[in-house]
Amino acid sequence: MTLVKFNPEKKNSSLLPGFNDIFESVLGDTFFTDRRISSLPAANISESNAAYHIDLAAPGLKKENFRVGLDGHLLRISSEQQDESNTEGKNFNRREYGYASFTRSFTLPESADVNAIQASYKDGVLSLHIPKKEEARAVSKQIEIQ
């Protein structure tokens, strides 16, 4: 048996020299990496005693672009936006905007009151307020020491 050490720094291109370099140059290009990273908006999920909060960073959109739906305890947030600006007579070398869409899904816990969800969009952030059911709220009280 032969043991071969794995060295992630050294690319094994003995079979096809330059093969890995081609893929890294194409897939590592900012055009592709920016598309992969920016396809989903970042989400902050927090919890308080009375509710869950979801904040989605989605700047540049309007509240009309969003669709928020509920299927059982699966919360779906999606958006679709298309730039319909006049491009007649323009010769683009590179065009990176014009159409954007995303879908994010969140599974809500059983303690969420799905009938009282509220959503608002302000300053590029879509905020969802999901209250907890009354019986799921944590009760805190001082206990007297005797």
Rank of each mutant, 00 (worst) to 15 (best):
D55K: 15
L126H: 06
F19Q: 08
S101D: 09
S38P: 00
H53L: 14
A119P: 00
P8S: 07
S46N: 06
L126A: 08
Q81Y: 14
R76T: 15
K141S: 12
L40A: 11
A50G: 12
P109N: 05
S111A: 14
G72A: 01
V26N: 07
G89F: 03
L61E: 00
I54E: 01
R94D: 09
R104A: 01
F19W: 14
A43E: 12
S46P: 05
K63C: 00
N12W: 10
G72E: 10
G89D: 01
A51W: 02
K90N: 11
F19P: 00
D123H: 08
S38E: 13
E144F: 07
F6P: 00
S120R: 09
A112S: 02
R36I: 15
E144L: 12
R76W: 01
Y121D: 02
E9T: 15
K62P: 01
S13R: 12
L61A: 08
K141C: 07
T33I: 03
S85Q: 06
N65F: 03
F66M: 02
A100P: 02
D21M: 12
P109M: 05
L75F: 02
R94P: 00
Q82R: 13
G124F: 08
T107M: 11
P109A: 07
L74M: 11
G18C: 04
N91W: 15
S127E: 06
S101T: 13
D113I: 04
P59C: 05
G124T: 11
E110L: 08
V139I: 09
L108Q: 03
G98S: 10
F106L: 00
E96G: 11
E64W: 07
M1S: 11
L56M: 09
D29H: 15
K63N: 10
M1P: 11
V114R: 03
L75Q: 00
R67T: 15
K132T: 00
H129R: 13
N12D: 12
I77N: 04
G69I: 04
F6S: 09
L61H: 05
G72D: 06
A57E: 14
T30F: 14
I77K: 01
S85C: 07
G69M: 03
D113M: 03
S78C: 11
L126Q: 04
N115L: 12
V114Q: 02
R35P: 00
G72S: 03
I143N: 12
K90H: 14
S39Q: 15
L61F: 06
R94L: 15
K10H: 06
E47A: 13
E24I: 09
A138L: 10
Y99C: 11
I77M: 04
F66Q: 01
N86E: 08
H129D: 12
T30L: 14
D83G: 10
D29L: 08
L70I: 04
S13Y: 09
H73Y: 05
S78E: 10
T30E: 14
S46A: 09
D123S: 09
N65D: 06
E134G: 11
F23R: 10
G124K: 01
S14H: 14
F32C: 00
E134N: 12
K5Q: 00
I117D: 10
S101N: 15
I45L: 07
Y52C: 03
G89A: 04
R67G: 12
A116F: 09
I45Q: 11
A138N: 08
